[in-house]
């Protein structure tokens, strides 16, 4: 067994009175690929945003790569540099070119030299097959290309964990495949990944485990094959019958 890279114990979170996450317990091992699914409003996005503290949890412990998430800002910045994240809305920086989007954080956060950062960025852009777009600006790219650039940008920080928050939900059907291909490649490379998605084909192909969430609770957590073949709870069965 490999080491546990993320440990969540009794994590609770409230938005004012609304209880979003209820006693979440989740361990992720290094190089594991986990897909999180569930109806909207079930807290799946909040769950992964808690892992790099874009959202604050109010109760419980989250330990990422041996560092506990707390008020300590130095720790938070250290963890964020190790955890890459890809968003539904891409969130590229529109005032910078694709290449500058990728090199900004390595240069300023990791203190890499400009030359090294650019080399690394070009390598990552080749991985997602858009090296020819490097000089363009985000506004000039298609949605699929933008999302692949966002993946490359996150990878340029050489993270240990990648979080994906519904990476294909804002894309045209035709562009979903090119983004999923990039993600499958990444999974084959041995990255630890937590993916919130409704793409069940992707889940079947790469996930080690699938988590089903509803109303802030992890309803079901099973290895991929079992999850699709023998879902335990009725809620999961209902969800799967609607989505497949």
């Amino acid at each position: 067994m490999s080491e546990k890279i993320i440990q969540m114990e009794n994590v609770n979170k409230w938005f004012d009175d609304f209880h979003v996450l209820k006693d979440i317990n989740l361990d992720v091992e290094s190089k594991q690929k986990i897909v999180v699914c569930g109806p909207s409003g079930s807290g799946k996005s909040t769950l992964i945003r808690c892992i790099n503290r874009l959202e604050e949890h109010q109760k419980g412990n989250i330990i990422v790569d041996g560092t506990e998430l707390s008020e300590n800002t130095k720790n938070i910045e250290k963890i964020r540099a190790e955890v890459g994240m890809v968003f539904q809305q891409f969130n590229l920086f529109p005032h910078l070119s694709i290449l500058d989007n990728c090199t900004l954080a390595p240069i300023w956060v990791k203190k890499m030299s400009k030359k090294d950062a650019e080399e690394l960025a070009m390598k990552q852009l080749e991985q997602v097959q858009i090296p020819d777009q490097a000089k363009k600006f985000p506004g000039q790219l298609s949605g699929g290309q933008q999302q692949r650039c966002a993946i490359a940008r996150a990878l340029c920080m050489q993270p240990k964990i990648m979080l994906f928050d519904e990476p294909t939900s804002a894309l045209d059907p035709e562009m979903i495949k090119e983004v999923l291909d990039a993600m499958v490649n990444l999974a084959k490379g041995g990255m630890t990944m937590i993916v919130v998605t409704h793409e069940m084909g992707f889940a079947k192909e790469v996930a080690d485990e699938v988590i089903f969430m509803d109303e802030g609770i992890i309803v079901e957590k099973q290895p991929t094959k079992d999850f699709f073949a023998h879902p335990k709870s009725d809620r999961t069965k209902l969800f799967l019958s609607q989505i497949l």
Partner: peptide, 25 residues
């Protein structure tokens, strides 16, 4: 808000986030 999220997720602190990402825009 996504611009803040993206910059934070890359490990930028308050000043880097504002000087490099938010203020130029």
């Amino acid at each position: 808000r996504g611009q803040y999220d993206a910059a934070k997720s890359l490990g930028m602190g308050y000043w880097k986030l504002h000087l490099l990402v938010i203020l130029p825009q």
